[in-house]
């Protein structure tokens, strides 16, 4: 299973380094989402690319501390499905 952005342009983000949530603006729908920072980083890493869960997991593991690695591995597929439900990510079977 692979994933790409569902939006025509990269969403806009507001990150605060001290917080566990981030704000994401979908430029196509005009919707604003409060996401976990993990989800926001996953979206920002997708960019123009189509990535597999394994690729994304590797990228996220490199961006967060080692203690989170296990959680990222477990949670990444669910995370991408949730982002798909929000209309932010497209799933390629």
């Amino acid at each position: 299973m692979h994933f790409s952005l569902a939006t025509s342009r990269t969403p806009l983000f507001y990150f605060d380094p001290n917080e566990e949530t981030s704000v994401c603006f979908n430029p196509d729908s005009g919707d604003t989402h409060l996401l976990s920072t993990l989800a926001a980083v996953a979206l920002s890493e997708l960019g123009d690319e189509t990535l597999s869960v394994a690729d994304l997991t590797q990228i996220l593991k490199s961006r967060f501390d080692a203690a989170s690695a296990g959680e990222i591995e477990t949670y990444a597929p669910t995370l991408m499905e949730e982002l798909s439900n929000l209309g932010l990510v497209k799933i390629h079977e």
């Binding site: 507001y14 990150f15 605060d16 917080e19 949530t21 981030s22 704000v23 604003t32 409060l34």
Partner: peptide
Amino acid sequence: RPRTVSFVLAA
């Protein structure tokens, strides 16, 4: 309160 949460509430 967190700024990101406040952003969404202010919106």
